[in-house]
């Protein structure tokens, strides 16, 4: 299999996707694979980590090395995978708004500030889908669901603002209804040397009857169409909070900073997994105990 022969089929497993008909996860599934084809990354050169949720059932549908972790825990294994083998072409962590901004939100903040070289894609459908429809950390205030029949009393998490506040070096928003735009963001996110967070508006056609494809189509606009330059954190911050009927998508913020790995002299060349084992000389470590 050579680079120019790659097609999105190469990233497909024999498992038939189990997402609902019309689910926006299909679009993201296509966009990610298109990005990998365009980048010429072969399946064995990419590691995906997933957690638990509708999005992460994708663990069974993507061809690659897959670490399908527990709910909300997609990021910590992804970080260590990157440290263990920085020569892998791509490490992509995939999660949702429930796992990513609820139970796993601590990991998110710390992954951002560590600037580990990986792309974190969050499927943000503003609801818990796999558990059949409860309010999530990104559900709007007043949201009615099985767990909040009288309306959600909490303000939602703003994922992109949180990424900016946590010093992520690449912050973007995509929309599952804008496939090519999304694939382009994924390419940029993979290429970004450092931590890239891509939050995707991903309508849940079964359980979220508020934030639908139509709802988003009426509101989203592309930042690059407005001449926006993604190099000013303050500006990005303001854009990330834009809400009155307008939802910007595209690259909000990008800065170049040393990655975590680049600051480790022991990983300057050889990958950790390539280090020779055995024939260890403990003399140096034992000096203090003599």
């Amino acid at each position: 299999m050579s680079e120019n022969q790659l097609t999105i089929k190469d990233y497909e497993t024999p498992v038939c996707p189990t997402w609902c008909p019309g689910c926006s996860n299909y679009s993201i599934w296509v966009a990610v694979r298109q990005a990998l084809v365009k980048l010429g990354i072969q399946p064995h050169e990419v590691v995906f980590t997933f957690d638990i949720g509708c999005n992460s059932n994708g663990a069974n549908f993507y061809q690659g090395y897959i670490c399908h972790a527990l709910h909300g825990r997609a990021l910590p294994p992804a970080e260590a995978i990157r440290w263990a083998n920085h020569k892998l072409k791509a490490v992509i962590a995939v999660g949702g708004d429930g796992g990513g901004f609820g139970i796993g939100v601590g990991h998110f903040i710390h992954a951002c500030r560590r600037n580990v070289d990986l792309l974190y894609i969050t499927h943000d459908n503003q609801i818990y889908g796999l558990t059949t429809g409860q309010t999530s950390p990104t559900s709007p205030k007043g949201f009615i669901s099985k767990s909040t029949p009288f309306g959600n009393l909490e303000e939602p998490v703003n994922p992109s603002a949180l990424a900016l506040a946590s010093r992520a070096t690449w912050v973007a928003r995509g929309f599952a209804g804008e496939l090519n735009h999304l694939a382009d963001l994924i390419i940029k996110g993979i290429k970004h040397p450092g931590f890239a967070h891509l939050n995707i508006f991903q309508p849940c056609v079964t359980f979220n009857k508020v934030n639908t494809f139509e709802w988003f189509r009426e509101r989203v606009y592309k930042l690059e169409d407005t001449g926006y330059q993604p190099h000013d954190r303050q500006l990005a911050w303001e854009k990330s909070w834009e809400m009155n009927g307008q939802l910007p998508i595209g690259l909000l913020y990008e800065i170049t900073a040393p990655t975590y790995r680049e600051q480790l002299p022991q990983l300057a060349t050889e990958a950790l997994v390539e280090k020779k084992l055995g024939e260890i000389d403990l003399t140096r470590a034992l000096a203090e105990f003599r």
Partner: peptide
């Protein structure tokens, strides 16, 4: 790491990648 949950998940991630 930020907590012991991250700690064990990182250790598993590194091990999955072939590192002791």
């Amino acid at each position: 790491a930020e907590d012991e949950i991250a700690v064990i998940n990182m250790a598993i991630g590194a091990s999955f990648t072939g590192v002791r």
